[in-house]
Design a protein around this nucleic acid. Structure first.
Lengths: 133, 133
DNA sequence: TTGCGATGTTTCCGGTCGGATATAACGCAT
DNA sequence: ATGCGTTATATCCGACCGGAAACATCGCAA
């Protein structure tokens, strides 16, 4: 019988390398990558551009600029922000924003699975990183 | 019946967007992405780091630095270079270099296929790029 | 009506990245 | 021995990026 051990870790936890990052490039300088996506995720959780930026160790200026670029790149804005009000203002994802976020995450999963073979091969060729500074 | 039109284009040719880029991150600043891989490919074709760099509009300094980083990141070097000789010197991929290059390209193909559904969805949400400056 | 907290916007400035440049080392051909 | 073309390496410097900070704006609450 299979061990009933309550292994809560679906991933080995000892081999996060190499980590896969993907970026969608559409146009000369318009792109969607891990950074903007994580920002979207944090905006969704925090309800604020500033708070999301702080959580990512990012200046408000940069966070706001990324949101502006995101909103400009898509037909409909991904982030809806408002000033004033009880809590001073805030921001949340639009339906399109939620959609893009979900789709990107799904894409990540699909890709990690589809490429696991090649990734393993490349990892086997990598230098051991246990002694890196 | 379906039209027997000799549609030769499996892709619309007008919609290369979004283009997918992937990067393998292993460590704090060690990574493998489209840039280094293309450099590997050109070194293989040109037999020279300098020529490959020129082909990519890249200074020799930068090209050489990328090769150095590549060689440092893997157990065995990916590029074997030599100075002097009839043609002044040259560089070519090692067996490991060929392997990594091929594996990365294969990974790209696998991923483009596995993620086509999500990519299409995201593309449908993108602003039309036909009128970009 | 005053205050608050967030968004929106501008200006300033320092660190860093990478190009340009110069130079040395190398090994074969002539 | 000299020349050549490439690899290898150091120095200099301008451009660009992004953070810091200051400030204006907004709308509700007290």
């Amino acid at each position: 019988m299979t061990s009933p051990s309550p292994m809560p870790a679906p991933e080995p936890a000892s081999a996060p390398w190499p980590k896969l990052r993907l970026r969608l490039v559409f146009g000369d300088d318009a792109m969607l990558g891990p950074g903007k996506v994580e920002l979207l995720e944090f905006i969704r959780e925090e309800g604020s551009i500033a708070a999301a930026g702080r959580r990512m160790n990012m200046s408000y200026k940069r966070a706001w600029m990324l949101v502006e670029h995101l909103n400009a790149a898509f037909r409909e804005p991904l982030v809806d922000s408002s000033r004033g009000g009880a809590k001073g203002g805030g921001a949340q994802l639009t339906a399109t924003g939620e959609r893009v976020l979900a789709e990107y995450r799904k894409l990540e999963d699909r890709i990690a699975e589809a490429g696991s073979s090649e990734i393993d091969t490349i990892r086997s060729l990598l230098r051991d990183m246990s002694d890196e500074k």
